[in-house]
Amino acid sequence: MSSLKIAIGSILLRNPLILTAGILGTTFSSLNRCYAAGFGAVTTKSIGIEPREGYANPSVIYIPEIDSIINAVGLANPGYITYGQELKKIDSEVKYIMSIFGSTPDEFQLIIKYIQSRNLVNPPKAFELNLSCPHATKGGISVGTDPEIVYEIVKGATSVSRIPIWIKLTPNITDIKSIADAGVRGGATGIVAINTVKAMLIDITTKKPILANIRGGLSGRAIKPIGIHAIYDLYEYLGAKTPLIGTGGIWNWQDIIEYILAGATAVGMGSLLFNYNNLELSVNKLITGIKKYLETQDMSISEIRGLAHEHAQI
């Protein structure tokens, strides 16, 4: 069987499947369980400065018609100091990415410095910057939608971090390339795209929005073509040198191949695990599917990366 080992910059993973931020990542025990199930790496829940309870329910709803999930959890997290305790208990073999959020470059720096000062036996392999927070002063715009703010945040983070900095991009923007460009200029060595797509649901009986927060983000099958488009654009713009983590709507192994053909180095996934029966089996099915495809094509995983672009150039 062909190897699925990949490198995201200096980070070596046993396979390209990464459990994405916000799914099963609140506790050390669920991260351990997911890694044991076979993921190449797992990502923590996004952690910020202060503890947050998140929004009221309904906050996570599966929409059967489109195999998708709408959520407005509201960055619930125990705060970086408490979460530092959680990280101490992550198994030593688990490769994990720590997702962090903030409103200012200082907040990101504070969290990175604190985590690095903990002398963790198993520290994170990278920090993933969740840029979905509203900006502290710029009238509530999400920090990830302004290239200058993104540049400042990433530059601030890379200046204090001893490990790679990744950024997670929102699709809710006209030009995703300008944000990626700002991130790369700031020193990001991994681009994760995409975060959830703005969405909402209204109940026609009560005539009221269903999510307690009214507005939310969509993940799952419906957003995969949007994610593929983003990765295709980013690969075309940044070239093969920048690692891309294609995320959004992966539901089977074919979707993973599609992301890699578009230009992804690795893939993030999470929504497909809703109502899981057997995590090991679910991950194993994906890995077997990818391996068989590569065998049939007689190619390695790095050889198929970005192949869809060659056809485009004809």
């Binding site: 916000g22 990542g25 609140t26 506790t27 996570v60 959520n71 959890v73 929504s271 809703f274 899981y276």
Partner: peptide
């Protein structure tokens, strides 16, 4: 309990 689907991790 938050999500009911086993995915939010809470």
């Amino acid at each position: 309990i938050r999500c009911g689907y086993g995915i939010c991790g809470s």
